[in-house]
Design a protein around this nucleic acid. Structure first.
Length: 863
RNA sequence: GCCGGGGUGGCGAAAUUGGCAGACGCGCCAGACUUAGGAUCUGGUGGAGCAAUCCUUAGGGGUUCGAGUCCCCUCUCCGGCACCA
């Protein structure tokens, strides 16, 4: 192919236009107050999830979303919007560090190389980014503000009454007023327990191979998401972010967003809000009680035993001497197990009796207390009341260990085995006869009156484990003095990582930064925090930095933020396009940080992203996921080399719906390439010497009525489809347009003009080039194409005088009639019955009914 | 297991409110131009049948004058969650 002659000279003009756009800064957009800013225009902020610049470069999956947002950007500019369309680099994190360790090059070097490579590739696709707004998470002028946001988290607490973050200084003042005699030490402890960024000794996911802890979200099937190495649980002192404080808001405030319902659902499931109650079970002859969380307090009369997580703090107290050895053995056994083994659903339930008993608060009955690893220490209170008759897990456990199963809910229809649905309460004293929902309310009231329980909400969401034992990440703006953490001053930012030669993991829990002895040790026995932030940190707020990327005073300029993020909707960014793989993690974290910044007054919207669209995955030609090991990876460079950037763009959009997963096809690329060549030849022709010149068929005639109809139908279709991100059907319509004029002997230049503008967002190089060449002969092509106004369609060209109506007999197509548009039903009926095929098939039958759908269909029902 | 999204020609896919299933593209077939065609142009192309006609949107049932579209059941593929009390 590369040897073959190109069907149109894209290798000449594609680089040319990319150069011109770069030199003229064609797609640069000004902020409010800056020269060239037009306040009369509405704003449109459209962005892609920025890439992680890996060593491999782009594959054809990347440009799919980028092309979609680029088309919309170019379209919106032509519709008179100020368009913010930026790009940047998410460059801290494990892959870069792993790659650096492998190649022996410093991650800053490989990162710079990878970024240069990616940027070159994106430029060759002809994407209209405003590169003056480029951000890079590893640039000190950027991560200075990532660290600054961390300081805001550190210096804030969540006020549960106002349901918002407030400065920790306010809490300190309130505390001082309420407890004036409290020691400084105690007060510090109190405040530290309320910060949004806090230190906790917590069981974490430790990955020995990577030498770091990982967030729950980064562990898949007991292995690290990056690299697939085994992960074990171990307690470590870690920085945590109090995202759970925002659980309700993160869930509730989804409702105002234009996101796919499936993504909202994914987030809701991840947050996992669950309403129920806490119930206290007293221990006989002791002060202590065991509190359980349950969503089914109505089944309390069926609680025939209790189960504690093996790690529960009361296990030692309640275990009887006789059971001591067995309990210890079981707890040991469980501690040895990896998470993978523990959560393996297929396995049989295990557990052991502690020998202890508790009192069921509703009926005073003694119930045995067991421990079992199917009860998680990290959810609820780490203890449950077991209702084997109405919970699958308890049922399975009770059957295995011969525990009592007592039915207390009557199912609406008889069922076998365990019934966990709603029904009518039975064997439940004062609840008898009540429906499940009523019984729940009644029993909670009963418990609350007696101080034995209360309404309660639990979440699956855990606080965000925020520290990593890595080199290639943002250092914390934190130092340690006398065993206490302290925030650095804003003026100390950025905290730049030390220039280590050996940044490999230490092989112990000590982070690599511990190797930079001079950097770590500060005067006065003060030591720096050695952990770094996780990769998610930089991507949590980059959409804000695009707005004022060089601002030295604030993370984002206030006026510019109000303009670009404004618009009266909950979310600021008008369109955010990226893959589903970030459905929970990145999008939840970014929303969390945004809400904190909102609470503290730094941003003007409660949500970052108003509209979210997930582009689907592009598979290899073999219908498999693209991967190096399968050898089916296709890169944009090879496509651009053979078919040009416009063909790449157009094919990416023509493949199918943006959201769909779809396989690549080189034959399909050829198809759109041929289409673009036909567009070229609509205006150009090859002379004797083989040089391209303007076609003699071009003429300044008016398009004919049929042509006008196609022109206006296409304007309408392309406009509506672009708005709906239905690019594949927009392209189909433009193909119809081109087919119409290819066969025309004389080609009206006005038709060509309209086509080029419609095509410009899709194939910007070709349309720029043709526009320029046509301007040499036809004055209507003055100016630059990107400055033209988007065409408007006129419905009067689309209306038909006559319509073809299909005639069915008993629902089967029998004939077609052509009648005047909007002809009254009676006349249509008559015309339909008179149609020859209809007469034939109704002959000798009784017409029972005739259905007439105006301008569409007639259905004759016969016996 | 639970939740979500799919299943339409040989292939990628279209199809407003329920109203001609398969637009557009690929592939294939035939023709034109041509020294040549893997370029270009023209025509054809869901399946069966010489034909009239019949069949056809994963499979089965239902609602309806009329169902790819709405309802119920089943199969299957993809994604997510995975003992969350």
């Amino acid at each position: 192919m590369s040897e073959r002659r190109k069907q149109y000279p894209f290798p000449d003009f594609e680089p040319k236009w990319q150069r011109i756009w770069g030199e003229q800064k064609t797609f640069r957009v000004a902020n409010p107050g800056e020269p060239g800013f037009d306040p009369a225009k509405p704003k449109f902020y459209v962005m892609d999830m920025f890439p992680y610049p890996s060593g491999e470069g782009l594959h054809v999956g990347h440009p799919e979303g980028y092309t979609a947002t680029d088309i919309l950007s170019r379209y919106k500019r032509m519709r008179g919007f100020n368009v913010l369309h930026p790009m940047g680099w998410d460059a801290f994190g494990l892959p870069a560090e792993q790659y650096a360790i492998k190649t022996g090059q410093h991650p800053s070097v490989t990162t710079a190389q990878n970024i240069a490579r990616f940027k070159g590739q994106l430029t060759r696709i002809g994407l209209s980014f405003d590169w003056s707004r480029e951000v890079n998470t590893t640039d000190p002028s950027y991560f200075r503000w990532t660290q600054w946001i961390f300081l805001q988290l550190y210096n804030s607490w969540f006020d549960p009454v106002k349901k918002k973050a407030r400065p920790i200084a306010e809490l300190e003042a309130e505390r001082k007023a309420a407890h004036p005699d409290e020691s400084a030490e105690d007060r510090r402890e109190y405040l530290d327990q309320h910060r949004l960024a806090y230190v906790a000794e917590a069981p974490v996911n430790w990955c020995p191979q990577l030498g770091t802890v990982l967030a729950n979200e980064e562990v898949v099937d007991g292995k690290s998401d990056v690299g697939g190495f085994p992960v074990v649980r171990r307690p470590m002192r870690q920085w945590m972010l109090r995202i759970t404080a925002y659980a309700d808001r993160l869930q509730d405030e989804l409702s105002g967003l234009d996101w796919p319902e499936s993504i909202k659902l994914l987030q809701r499931n991840w947050i996992g809000r669950s309403e129920g109650s806490e119930v206290d079970f007293r221990l006989p002859r002791r002060k202590a009680k065991i509190t359980v969380f349950t969503t089914r307090p109505d089944t309390l009369f069926g609680a025939t035993y209790m189960v504690l997580a093996p790690e529960h703090e009361l296990v030692d107290k309640i275990t009887t001497a006789a059971q001591r050895a067995a309990v210890d053995a079981y707890r040991n056994e469980v501690a040895q197990k990896s998470d993978l083994e523990r959560t393996n659903l297929a396995k049989e339930k295990t557990g052991i009796s502690t020998g202890g008993f508790a009192i069921n608060p509703v009926n005073g009955q003694k119930v045995p207390i067991w421990i079992a690893d199917y009860v998680l220490s990290s959810y609820g209170t780490g203890a449950i009341m077991a209702v084997p008759a109405h919970d699958e897990r308890d049922f399975e456990f009770a059957r295995k260990f011969g525990l009592e199963i007592r039915e207390v809910v009557e199912p609406p229809n008889p069922v076998e085995g365990c019934f966990s649905g709603s029904g009518t309460a039975i064997n439940s004293d004062f609840l008898n006869g009540l429906q499940t929902s009523e019984a729940k309310a009644r029993v909670i009231d009963w418990l609350e009156e007696r101080g034995l329980g209360k309404r309660s909400v639990n979440y699956k969401l855990r606080d965000w484990l925020f520290s990593r034992q890595r080199y290639w990440g943002e250092p914390f703006p934190i130092v340690w003095r006398d065993g206490h953490h302290e925030a650095l001053a804003e003026t100390d930012l950025p905290v730049i990582p030390p220039p280590l030669d050996d940044y490999r993991p230490t092989g112990t829990i000590e982070p690599p930064l511990s190797k930079a002895k001079d950097w770590v040790q500060l005067p006065g026995g003060v030591r720096r925090e050695l952990n770094t932030m996780p990769q998610w940190a930089g991507s949590c707020w980059y959409y804000l930095r695009y707005i004022s990327p060089t601002d030295q005073q604030r993370l984002v300029d206030a006026d510019a933020e109000r303009y670009w993020m404004g618009g009266g909707k909950p979310g600021g960014v008008d369109l955010y396009v990226g893959g589903t793989e970030h459905a929970v993690l990145h999008l939840l974290y970014a929303r969390f940080w945004h809400k904190v910044l909102f609470d503290l007054g730094y941003v003007s919207t409660v949500e970052p992203f108003q509209r979210l669209v997930n582009q689907g995955m592009i598979l290899g030609e073999d219908n498999q996921k693209m991967s190096k090991s399968r050898g089916n990876v296709i890169g944009p460079d090879e496509i651009i080399e053979d078919y040009g950037a416009d063909s790449l763009r157009l094919y990416e959009m023509f493949m199918g719906p943006l959201e769909a997963t779809k396989p690549w096809s080189m034959a399909g690329v050829e198809g759109v390439y041929r289409f673009l060549a036909r567009v070229w030849r609509l205006a150009m022709t090859e002379n004797q010497e083989g040089a391209w010149e303007l076609s003699p068929n071009l003429s300044e005639v008016e398009p004919g009525p049929q042509q006008k109809k196609v022109i206006h139908a296409t304007i309408k279709k392309v406009t509506e489809d672009v708005e709906a991100l239905a690019f594949n059907t927009a392209i189909s319509q433009m193909m119809i347009y081109v087919n119409t004029f290819t066969t025309a002997e004389r080609r009206p230049v006005t038709a060509l003009r309209t086509l080029l503008i419609l095509l410009n967002p899709f194939a910007p190089h070709l349309s720029e080039e043709l526009w320029e060449r046509l301007s040499q002969r036809f004055p209507t092509f003055s100016g630059q194409i990107s400055q033209q106004a988007w065409p408007v369609w006129d419905d009067t060209y689309l209306v038909e005088d006559e319509v073809e109506i299909i005639v069915q007999v008993n629902g089967k197509l029998r004939d077609k009639i052509t009648v005047q548009k909007d002809l009254d039903s009676k006349a249509v009926e008559e015309a339909a019955l008179a149609a020859p095929k209809v007469k034939e098939s109704t002959a000798g039958k009784t017409v029972r009914k005739i259905v007439v759908v105006p301008n569409r269909v007639v259905n004759v029902v016969v016996s």
